[in-house]
């Protein structure tokens, strides 16, 4: 490689000589079977044509399958199980129709097309020094004609305008959404919010929840709010889980007597990046997030015992209302869900 580096290819004859030299070094062209044996060539020809015709046949079959097979027809195929008949028929016929054109063309080129390696020269990509100089000179002439460097006031004012002009495009984006305000700290839960089972909406009596039990729950007014707002934003923050354990198994809580007879309520939204979290192991009282495996100990204030989450799972203080159903004593004391810059300690 080193000997050939930067070979100056100045004249055509020099180029021709270089090509000849490389060609002489190339291994001799070995004829293929199809080059010397007409029978082999004819066989290859037939193979190629068969592939192209096979493709045409598959296209016809595709149209037949499209028309003939109902969209919900299923079929059992050994090794695949029960599959949609239309999908597999269309996929196989269409796939083969395309594939056979490809294999046919490649086979044709490999067996029958005149194949001889050719040599072309590369030229250094850089222009000659003269050309570079000429380009610089031309540019300077135009530059002088415009007076760009000679008139600093124009230059600077133009630059100022150019720097500022994209600003409207950014400002225009302002109404993409409202400002955050304090909404990330608020949920639907407030003193006296009744806890109902998700998705059935039934209120819960303490006795309903068996020892070792788990249930996903929401505030009673969530469906209404959801309907009103037309989105799932409230749900994304208000979802909770209720678990029940022996009161003596509770090591600590986020507030005094925030449980009700061993029933604890925690936010269902992971404090890492916000996945819903409900893989509850009733014996260890651990709650595992299926997204990144943050693990929280519900018997110990919902503290993090493993994984990337940095903050404990917020607990909801609960009690019962006069009718004997579980209700929230108060809203969450800290923001639920993932951390955000303004969150701080609160």
């Amino acid at each position: 490689m080193t000997t050939h580096e930067n070979l100056p290819a100045t004249t055509e004859s020099a180029e021709a000589a270089a090509i000849e030299k490389a060609a002489a070094a190339l291994p001799a062209h070995r004829p293929r079977r199809t080059d010397v044996d007409p029978k082999a060539a004819r066989r290859a020809e037939r193979q190629v044509a068969a592939m192209f015709l096979g493709s045409a046949l598959m296209t016809v079959l595709f149209v037949v399958a499209f028309v003939a097979i109902p969209v919900d027809e299923t079929v059992y195929i050994w090794g695949f199980g029960t599959v949609n008949a239309s999908n597999i028929a269309l996929g196989v016929t269409f796939g083969l129709a395309i594939l056979l054109i490809g294999t046919g063309a490649i086979h044709w080129s490999k067996k029958l097309m005149n194949e001889k390696e050719e040599i072309q020269l590369r030229h250094p990509l850089a222009s000659s020094d003269e050309e570079r100089e000429a380009a610089v000179e031309a540019f300077q002439t135009y530059q002088a004609d415009s007076g760009f460097t000679q008139r600093p006031i124009i230059r600077r004012s133009l630059l100022t305008a150019m720097v500022l002009f994209p600003i409207p495009m950014v400002v225009l984006l302002r109404d993409l959404g409202p400002l955050p305000g304090e909404v990330l700290r608020e949920t639907l839960w407030e003193p006296g919010s009744r806890i109902v089972i998700d998705p059935t909406g039934r209120p819960v009596r303490p006795s309903d929840l068996a020892l070792g039990g788990l249930i996903s729950a929401m505030p009673a007014d969530l469906p209404e709010v959801q309907e009103e707002e037309g989105n799932l934003n409230a749900r994304a923050k208000a979802a909770i889980i209720l678990v029940r354990m022996e009161p003596q198994e509770i090591v600590s809580q986020q507030g005094d007597n925030w449980d009700y007879g061993g029933i604890l309520a925690f936010s269902k939204i992971c404090t890492h990046v916000g996945c819903p979290i409900a893989l509850y192991e009733q014996r260890t009282h651990h709650l595992l997030c299926p997204c990144h495996q943050s693990t929280f100990d519900l018997a110990d204030s919902g503290n993090v015992v493993f994984g990337p989450a940095a903050r404990r799972l917020p607990q909801l203080p609960i009690t019962i209302d006069p009718e004997g159903f579980l209700v929230a004593v108060d809203g969450f004391a800290e923001p639920v869900g993932p951390s955000f810059w303004e969150r701080g300690d609160a």
Binding site: D208, L209, A210, G212, Q282, R283
Partner: peptide, 15 residues
Amino acid sequence: TGPQQMPVFSNETIT
């Protein structure tokens, strides 16, 4: 019954 680590889904919560 909530075998092993599985939590209990009683007939009162999941009817």
